[in-house]
Structure formats: C-alpha cells, structure tokens
Simulated assay, not measured.
Amino acid sequence: MSVVVVTYNSAATVGETLSSLSEQTYPGDRYEVLVVDGGSSDETEAVVSEYDAAFHVVEGGSIGACRNRGVALATGEYVAFTDSDCAVPATWIAAHVDRLEDREDETVVGVGGPNRPFPDDPPFAKLVGSLQGTVFGSGGSPQSHAIDEVRTVRSVAACNVVYDAAVFESHRYDDAVNVGEDAEFHHRLAEEGYRFLFDPATAVSHHLSADLGSFSRKNRSYGRAMARIQRRHGALIRWYSPLPSLALGGGTLAALADVRRRKPRYVPLLALAFLAVSAYATRQVYRDRRSPLALLVPLLLAVQYVCYGVGFLEGLIASDPEPTDRS
C-alpha cells in the first residue's frame, strides 16, 4: 500500500495529516507514505522531515502532475490519496482496503468516502461543511452530500480515495489540470465504464473555508476549473455546473424585463424560488448544527452560486482552455 499526500505551502497543516497516517491500524510495515510537493516556499519540507515519509518535489507542478509523480513512485498494490489539509481516521487504510478486497464488481477500481470539517475548526468552516451536506450546497456530489449507505458512484474526492494500482497501468491524472483534477480523471474512467465504491462510514477531516473571502475564492476557482474541463471534453461532467451561470443570466434578463415593463413580475418569482431553496437548506443545516449561524445559509448560498457562476463563465470564455490555475 502506498499513500500519496500532495502538498503546496502546507506547513501549518501537513503535520496533522502525517500524524494521522502514522496512527493507522493497518500494519505499519505494509504501507509507505509519499509526500509530493509542488514547490513550496514555506517550511513544508521541514515539517515532513519529522515524520516517516518520503519527500519529493515537482517544482511548479500542478496537482495533477504531483499526483502522477506519486503514482510513479508508488510500490504498493493499492494507491491511496489524501490532502495536506486533511486528517484520516485510524481505520482509514484498513477500511478502504477491505472494501476493495471484498468487491464483487470488476468495474470498481477504487473506494472513497466523505470529507467533514475538523471538530475544532471555526464555526464558519463547520457551517460550510453542513451546507455542503445538503443537495443545494453540493449538487449531490457524494463526497459532500449526506449519503448513508455504501453505493457505487462515478467519482469520489481525491482527498479520500484508495485505488487499485492496476488502473494506473493505462490511466493517469492529467498533468495540466490543477483544480478539479480528480473530477477530470474520474470522468475519463467513468466513460470507460469504471466505478468507485462510496463508503459514508469512512470520512476524513478536512479544513474547509474559514471565512467568507476564502469561501468566495474557492467557489469561483471551482466554477472556472469545471468550465474549462468541460470545454476540453465537450461533455457535461457535473450536471449542476452550468446552473448558477444560467441563474445569473436568467436573473439579469428578468430584471431587464421588469424594468422595461415598469412592473415587477419575474424578479419576485425568482426571489421566491431562491427563498424556498434557502429555507430548505437552512432547515437541513440547523438540524445538523443546532446553531443560529444556520440563518447565514441564504447568504452563503447566494455567494456560492454567484461566485461559482462567475467563475464558470470565466472558464467558458478563457482563451486558454486548460484549467491550470492553482487554488
């Protein structure tokens, strides 16, 4: 078993990741930890040196390129990935390996699970985590949306995945892709008929956006990357990805129509629809968090949709179709 941790300027968090990997119930002599760095300028290497992990640098490398370097270095029958702002549970390797070894479907090439905020993360990050647990906050993607049973899915998040190493004999991540590299890779696998098992019981802790600014930037980056990836493939990889942009365009047209008519008609209808969506999501988040901060959900949804929608439009019109921007 080879565990690959991709990192970039992660001195503040990579120690948590490596510490959690050192406490696995899986036999220590049966797995290796490989840290692949994209050219950090902070003390990431110094932190990694305190742990039993090999450190490799892909200077200026994208996340896709770093993942591929990890695959090339891996010696195990299975290749696992988690990120340098995550911590995995002690049973992480053992649980995922057991799932893979017991699989009956030959099309299954990996297993993954959800990611959740750290217990000691700021309240805002926990709010973001709860919002992503709703269908309107995640679009139903399994790594975030609340799924309560093991099922077969087309994609999982690369911060919580173990692959059968055999899949890398003929498939790799795209070196040019940074943000969204897992979605792009898994789309190609899915098109060839491969699938993943999603295990909701094996979640990793993940540092989510701690403030509104980082939340906005991340959603804009995701939107831009997804548009570029879909431009490349000429296919809709995430069914929900164009919806925020369409909503922005529709809202603008509705406002212009109401101005032209000098009578509000369409904008109030759109506002009511958004309020209905927000009310549902707010209720779900409150049930999860039991915090008055759930009242911020309408604001977060608005910011998420606007920033993702703007980013998606930027990705559509960008002169360079390659999603190479670093998050």
Rank of each mutant, 00 (worst) to 15 (best):
F55P: 08
V14I: 14
V33L: 03
T25M: 04
T25L: 11
T44Y: 12
E23Q: 13
A53T: 03
D29I: 08
A54P: 00
D42T: 05
Y51I: 08
G39L: 04
G38V: 04
V33T: 09
V58W: 06
E43S: 13
G39W: 06
V33Y: 02
D52N: 14
D42W: 10
S40Y: 12
T25V: 14
G39A: 03
G15I: 01
L34E: 00
V35R: 03
H56K: 12
V48F: 00
G15D: 05
V14A: 02
G39C: 05
V57K: 13
E23I: 00
P27W: 06
T44I: 07
V33R: 00
L21V: 12
G38E: 05
F55A: 08
Y31F: 15
E23S: 11
P27E: 06
D37M: 14
G15K: 02
T17W: 04
L18M: 06
E23F: 00
S49N: 09
R30Y: 03
S20P: 08
R30A: 08
A53L: 02
S40C: 11
V14F: 03
V35L: 03
T44F: 12
E45R: 15
A12N: 07
Y26H: 15
G38R: 06
V58Q: 09
Y51E: 02
G28S: 15
V35S: 01
T13Q: 09
E43N: 13
V33W: 01
V57C: 12
V14K: 02
E16L: 08
S41D: 15
Y51N: 01
L18C: 06
Y51F: 15
E43I: 01
V47M: 10
G28P: 04
Y31M: 10
S49G: 07
T17R: 02
Y31W: 12
V47N: 10
E16Y: 07
